[in-house]
């Protein structure tokens, strides 16, 4: 199941993870990804018929608590790290609009 990861695929996954990428970078990553994924394909040798996927480490119990209101960070404090804010809100440009 060897596959090469071409530059279009690289650009596609880059957009999925919201990562800007140049043509040059896409080419570099394409070669590297192919050799890494190729190495990982060794997992195909392992028979996993009837083997359940691991879904937890050790503490398999659900942990529940009351949903109580407790003091937390003030809005002013929270916004200290926000690059752009206005009237107590984080400010960003258009969220809904024309499709890319």
């Amino acid at each position: 199941m060897t596959q090469t990861i071409d530059t279009n695929t690289v650009k596609h996954v880059a957009f999925l993870v919201r990562l800007g990428i140049s043509e040059e970078e896409a080419q570099k990553f394409s070669g590297q990804f192919s050799s890494i994924i190729d190495y990982f394909n060794m997992l195909n040798e392992v028979d996993t018929e009837n083997i359940p996927p691991a879904s937890d480490i050790a503490n398999a119990e659900n942990v529940l608590r009351e949903d109580e209101v407790k003091p937390s960070m003030s809005r002013e404090e929270f916004l200290k790290n926000a690059p752009n804010s206005e009237r107590g809100y984080v400010k960003v440009p258009t969220v809904l609009g024309e499709e890319q």
């Binding site: 993870v17 990562l19 990428i21 590297q32 990804f33």
Partner: peptide
């Protein structure tokens, strides 16, 4: 994310999405 992440981080998050 293009400016803020180094190459290894870029590689890994892209391979993760893949």
């Amino acid at each position: 994310r293009h400016e803020g992440f180094g190459d290894e981080v870029k590689r890994r998050i892209m391979l993760g999405a893949y």
